[in-house]
Design a protein around this nucleic acid. Structure first.
Length: 565
DNA sequence: TTAGGGTTAG
């Protein structure tokens, strides 16, 4: 195939010539969202763990707070400095004009081109290479070069560009192999999964998509929030015999459907799926351990332990399926959720009698059960019991005990366990640290909590939005507005937004404290990530600003809000 | 990495 028209990036996606990662203006872009917050998960992923200036702290060095003057305040990246010159900020330089990529210095063959595209420094460079090689004499793109470009664009989070290339590929006279395209289902945003699935048969030269492709795309949609519309479309296609691009569901696809109905609380529909599966006589549709575990999990989470046991027995007696540690864990967790830790513990004996040794997950679940009951002693005992049973504690079981200790006033013991994990080469993850941060906050050790927030990215731990929200909520509830405003700057700078209610509360709290300038500043920062204050908060802001006789400020606040809408 | 388990925020 000869490419006569170079591909270009569809409008609405970031200018490929401008590397947003290094552009400070991006922290406080002009808001575009019309909702409370613009959807930000990609920003969260992009900015998670970005290192900051302060030197690393170690858990072992958690000490009383340094003198306030000894440590610089958390960075507040002023939105004003990135705003229009009318507000006194220095003018923001325009991005440099696009520089055309040089043509390949020599004739590129397919394998080398695919390698160059995959390793290209920017998606623009990849696209330029793709376009430039199209005009080489006698050259046609192959599935391998298309695939390299598609993956490169998807990794650069340019879904519309990838979709455009995909449509182009569908009209090219070449046949793809599934492994060249299926990774896109995970790289592209979930709502692109259906479009990919519909194109797959044409791209692969088949009548229908494979079970694997259907399962990957369906699971992506089921596991993602905010894709209900696309998921419903796919579910309708699955029920519609005229939709020839889909295969008839197999066990795996049924299991994903059951997971979906269980997750959305539609247990009755989930059991209808089980009945449907039982009606089949073919080998590729038959309820298995995953099917039963998913359904029993749904019953256990709903507190229906009796029904769960009935199904458990049916599974063993009628279908001759042997339960594993995972299924037992679902049941242990079910009892723990109901506060029936003694029954949860009895499952351990039952497991051993049935030649199924409890694993670290099972112990972690039981530790959490004791933790919910506030019984630290019992939780410690289970941890020791696990060790004596020869089950080496892993991050999950350590985290369970650390969480228990931190929530019940023994934060220092929890911190010692984190250090023990380090010594043993067992890596504490973001959940472990969030529990320590929460414990520190509950203890009023805010400086240590904030130190941890600042230093963890440098320690190689990717903090998530919860890490910041735990501290933000605590600072707010303690009325520590200075630190809350400082943390807001740190959060936004790293691409995380506070919870909607917390944002409103912070602004109202600043108004209550008479800190109009801080409230305005915080509003600018929040508005730039798509935040729209709720009506009562907005009223409070305007009222406070007017009371302070800062008419000009009031106009500025109005400007920000108009920008949001 | 075609499907099922624990922990954080809300």
């Amino acid at each position: 195939m000869k490419s006569h028209h170079p591909l270009c990036i569809p409008a609405g996606e970031p200018d490929l010539q401008t590397p947003s990662e290094t552009c400070p203006q991006r922290h406080f872009r002009r808001p575009r969202a019309s909702r409370h917050y613009r959807s930000a998960p990609h920003r969260e992923r992009r900015d998670a763990g970005r290192p900051t200036a302060p030197p690393p702290a170690d858990l072992a060095t958690m000490k009383p707070p340094p003198a306030p003057t000894a440590k610089p305040a958390l960075p507040w990246i002023s939105p004003l400095q990135y705003r229009s010159p009318a507000r006194g900020a220095p003018p923001v330089p325009s991005p440099p004009p696009p520089v055309p990529s040089p043509p390949p210095p020599r004739y590129l063959h397919h394998p080398e081109l695919a390698r160059l595209i995959a390793s290209s420094a920017s998606p623009q460079r990849a696209l330029d290479l793709f376009n430039a090689t199209s005009s080489q004499r006698g050259f046609s793109h192959t599935p391998a070069t298309f695939s390299a470009l598609l993956v490169r664009l998807a990794r650069a989070r340019l879904p519309r560009a990838a979709a455009a290339v995909l449509r182009r590929a569908a009209s090219a006279p070449c046949r793809f192999l599934e492994p060249q395209l299926l990774p896109l289902a995970r790289l592209l945003p979930p709502d692109h999964a259906l479009a990919l699935l519909r194109l797959l048969p044409a791209l692969l030269g088949r009548t229908r998509a494979s079970h694997k492709a259907l399962a990957v795309c369906l699971d992506r949609l089921v596991s993602s929030r905010g894709c209900r519309g696309v998921l419903d479309e796919l579910l309708a296609d699955l029920r519609d015999p005229r939709k020839k691009y889909l295969p008839r569901p197999n066990t795996c696809v049924y299991n994903i459907l059951i997971k979906h109905y269980v997750k959305s609380g539609e247990l009755e529909t989930a059991f209808k799926m089980l009945d449907e599966m039982r009606e089949y006589t073919c080998a590729d549709v038959k309820p298995n351990l995953v099917t039963y575990s998913t359904l029993i999990g749904g019953l256990c989470r709903g507190g229906k332990m009796k029904d769960a046991f009935q199904l458990f027995e049916d599974m063993i007696e009628k279908d001759r399926i042997v339960p594993d540690q995972l299924l037992y864990n679902v049941i242990i967790d079910g009892f723990c959720r109901l506060g029936q830790v003694d029954k949860a513990r009895a499952i351990f004996g039952f497991m051993r009698n049935n030649e199924c040794e409890p694993n670290a997950f099972n112990y972690a679940t039981l530790i959490n059960g004791h933790c919910k009951e506030g019984d630290i002693e019992a939780a410690r005992a289970v941890f020791e019991e696990m060790r004596s049973a020869g089950v080496e504690p892993d991050a999950v079981s350590y985290t369970a005990l650390i969480g228990c200790l931190c929530r019940h006033g023994s934060v220092d013991e929890g911190i010692n366990l984190v250090l023990e994990m380090k010594e043993k080469g067992c890596k504490a993850d973001v959940v472990t640290y969030n529990l320590v941060i929460e414990g520190l906050c509950k203890d009023g050790r805010m400086v240590e909590a904030m130190d941890l927030l600042e230093s963890m990215p440098l320690e190689g731990v990717q903090l998530n939005v919860a890490s910041y929200r735990i501290v933000m909520n605590c600072l707010f509830s303690r009325g520590e507005m200075d630190k809350a405003v400082g943390l807001l700057g740190l959060m936004l700078g790293r691409g995380f937004v506070p919870h909607y209610a917390a944002s409103n509360n912070l602004l109202i709290g600043l108004c209550d404290a008479g800190r109009v300038a801080d409230a305005t500043m915080a509003l600018y920062g929040l508005a730039d990530v798509g935040f729209m204050p709720e009506a009562s908060c907005w009223e409070r802001l305007v009222e406070t600003v007017c009371r302070e006789r800062k008419q000009r400020r009031s106009t500025e606040v109005l400007d920000v809000l108009i920008g949001v809408g």
